[in-house]
Design a binder for these strands. Sequence first.
DNA 1: CATAAAGGTTGACGTAACGTGAATGTCAAC
DNA 2: GTTGACATTCACGTTACGTCAACCTTTATG
Lengths: 254, 254
Amino acid sequence: MEYTISKLAKLAGVSSRTLRYYDEIDLLKPSRINSSGYRIYGQKEVDRLQQILFFRELEVDLETIIQIMNEPNFDQSNALIHHYNQLVQKRARLDKLIETIDKTIAHQKGEITLNNHEKFEAFKDNLVTENEQKYGEEIRKKYGDKTVDESNAKFRGMSKEDYEAMEKLGNEILELLPKAFKTGDPSSELAQQLAAKHKEWLTYSWPSYSKEAHRGLAEMYVADERFTAYYDKGIEGGTEFLKDAIFVYVDKQN
Amino acid sequence: MEYTISKLAKLAGVSSRTLRYYDEIDLLKPSRINSSGYRIYGQKEVDRLQQILFFRELEVDLETIIQIMNEPNFDQSNALIHHYNQLVQKRARLDKLIETIDKTIAHQKGEITLNNHEKFEAFKDNLVTENEQKYGEEIRKKYGDKTVDESNAKFRGMSKEDYEAMEKLGNEILELLPKAFKTGDPSSELAQQLAAKHKEWLTYSWPSYSKEAHRGLAEMYVADERFTAYYDKGIEGGTEFLKDAIFVYVDKQN
DNA sequence: CATAAAGGTTGACGTAACGTGAATGTCAAC
DNA sequence: GTTGACATTCACGTTACGTCAACCTTTATG
């Protein structure tokens, strides 16, 4: 089956301009050009376009898609995990925004009378994560962790005390992990303490606790190398163990 | 308290370029310019910037924000509801994407072996809603409902039969609503039938059912005039009643 | 068969919300 | 007095196309 440009465009739900553009940037070339200069696409191109649109929907920019598609050695799973994390964060942010508007609409029907505190709350969290993502590493290198933490605490609207408590919890988790690991049992006393601490830690940074979210995060830990590197630091297999402990813990919660 | 451009920028977490740009497009003017041409902002401007950022976070474009901020008669609540709906849809889409990636990561670890059907599934729904939003009204005017429905059905990957079944359900809900309303009791037999039908209807258009989502939608119905207009068509207060019935129904589910 | 409508082509400019220089002026501090 | 941080105004770059314009080719129709 062969397609002209607009046939393929209709099939895939994009504009023909889009296909010409993809041709231009060497993302998707037609299989051949006919005698009158028309672009003709075949099944292979249809499949490739599907892949492209798949990534585009994940909000991967075209430059990256080109790389993903052209280099077979490109680490696709890593790219996916990366975008997965972005999406999850984005959703969390959306949830918060929706909640905020909910309040505005439902409780103040039609009037925008949120106080400044509330107004800022919604996007401060967002700012802090964005800043961390973009500049976190750089800033940490330049000014050390303290500056970043303080500014993060400030942005989050947390007191420095809360923020430090959160950090302390994070460290306790790291300390407890190898000890719990030695029990070899994710449902052991120590392992469950670990999971409980982890939940407590979560409540500092997440707007609301849910079992699904907790499980999801645990899975992410295992899937994402950056986390496994972090939690396996003390003991190899620690991340996996933490995940198992969390799963047991979550399942136990009534 | 007065701020130079970079002080304000830091305070609000934006770049100074952004503030200059907002000045340029008359969105946020400094309170005064000092003798050497520096922009100086006061408390009023800080507040205004907060408002601006609030809307910007809702992904309202700056042109619209200018209108919202400059015309006190601009219907703010309507604008909010509009954006609320957009956000909710966006989140639903995100959920779907996350689910898809979940599958990819978890089940095929590292390998992208989704079949074409799955690959398209994730963004076909998105396309159809976007098309509906942008062109739905126009197309409906031009070609009548049938064309739109068929094309929607096609995009959704639904059979025409399924789509029509869904439409039939929608109509049944509209018919049942006044009858159930007359019982005056959201937990009455008829009202619960109504809610059950509504759930069934939902399963056609939503990727997965959840109590929260169902409740959320019911709340949206009441909050959004377009829905109240629709469900109050048969009987005044119908929307509210439908919401109550759904809440009872959802609570009853195990 | 002529002609119109539909669909194809290549430029090339427009968009939104800034980022990123360049060239230059100003202020605070050592 | 100089240095470095911070301010100013151009002005061009960015992304992923949308939208003409000017022109050519294929298909449908009276």
